[in-house]
């Protein structure tokens, strides 16, 4: 693999790891592991843990994909590996 492509791949892995950490945090941690703890707090009319598991995690997932798309398109251009129009 050329150095350029190697660097591109590393940058991709870093970005992916950060996004997946957030993915894990909102769903598995807030929505499942500490849901009972969070439920003592209120978020408008919801218990906070309940809100994460039935609403918040899903909204975060959507945002994560769009952040990924935006950052990856930037990386593609930075490393000159973007596809032709």
């Amino acid at each position: 693999m050329s150095k350029n492509n190697n660097d591109y791949w590393r940058a991709n892995i870093t970005l992916m790891s950060i996004l997946l950490a957030v993915w894990f945090f909102v769903s598995f941690i807030c929505g499942i592991l500490i849901v009972d703890y969070l439920n003592q707090f209120r978020f408008f009319g919801y218990k906070l843990g309940f809100w994460f598991s039935q609403q918040g995690a899903i909204y975060t997932f959507v945002v994560l994909i769009f952040v990924y798309v935006w950052r990856m398109n930037k990386l593609d251009r930075k490393y000159g590996v973007e596809e032709e129009e």
Partner: peptide, 10 residues
């Protein structure tokens, strides 16, 4: 829904 994050990123 979370499966789509895996699908999109991986």
């Amino acid at each position: 829904t979370g499966g789509y994050v895996l699908l999109a990123l991986l």
